[in-house]
């Protein structure tokens, strides 16, 4: 009986940890994304506008904030305007160009990502993940989920500096939190 309880405990821990957001100190796989990118988005990411695919580590910035969303997720829908505010705040902050925002549509086709982008007038780049490949690589996190990584990373992957699942609340406070995690603000 004790053995059964111990086995179940291990199973529970494994199951829960599989769904947890990537923790600071861990590493993300350097995932490959495919376009399309607008010329402005390509320029902001430092990626050739003609590139058919690119890896996260190729983004020309010091830090990348990933938003894992789904157009089907009501929380993501409610948060969309706030995330736009965050993007604008990042662009006008002292760290403009050093921290970039990029969205991954978990389980969303390109069509579905476009619906989300157009509905909320999202200015930062969004990418489709129709078969959940990237979502699985990220530990099947809930949505929305925000993961701050350092670039370009190393052979272990991209270092996770901060992560949050759910709404981030106050935009300025979250921006400060990100800057602190990135070591840009003491």
């Amino acid at each position: 009986m004790k053995r059964l309880a111990a086995s179940l405990a291990i199973l529970a821990i494994l199951a829960l940890s599989a769904r947890a957001q990537p923790a600071p100190g861990s590493f993300l796989a350097d995932m490959e994304l495919s376009g399309p990118l607008t010329p402005e988005q390509a320029a902001s990411l430092g990626i050739s506008k003609d590139a058919r695919t690119f890896r996260l580590s190729q983004v020309k910035a010091e830090f990348l904030l990933l938003e894992i969303f789904s157009m089907y997720c009501p929380h993501c829908q409610r948060e969309a305007s706030r995330v736009n505010e965050l993007d604008a705040a990042l662009r006008s902050s002292p760290w403009a160009g050093r921290i970039l925002l990029l969205g991954l549509g978990a389980g969303n086709s390109s069509f579905e990502v476009d619906v989300f982008r157009e509905q909320y007038k999202i200015p930062f780049p969004l990418f489709a993940d129709p078969d959940f490949t990237m979502h699985k690589a990220l530990g099947q996190v809930g949505t929305p989920c925000f993961i701050l990584v350092g670039l370009p990373g190393d052979e272990r992957g991209l270092p996770v500096l901060d992560s949050l699942t759910g709404g981030f609340g106050d935009t300025k406070a979250f921006l400060d939190r990100l800057a602190t995690a990135a070591g840009l603000k003491k």
């Binding site: 769904r19 978990a106 809930g142 929305p144």
Partner: peptide, 9 residues
């Protein structure tokens, strides 16, 4: 915890 993560929140 076996529920699909996309519905978790």
């Amino acid at each position: 915890s076996a529920l699909p993560a996309r519905a978790a929140l």
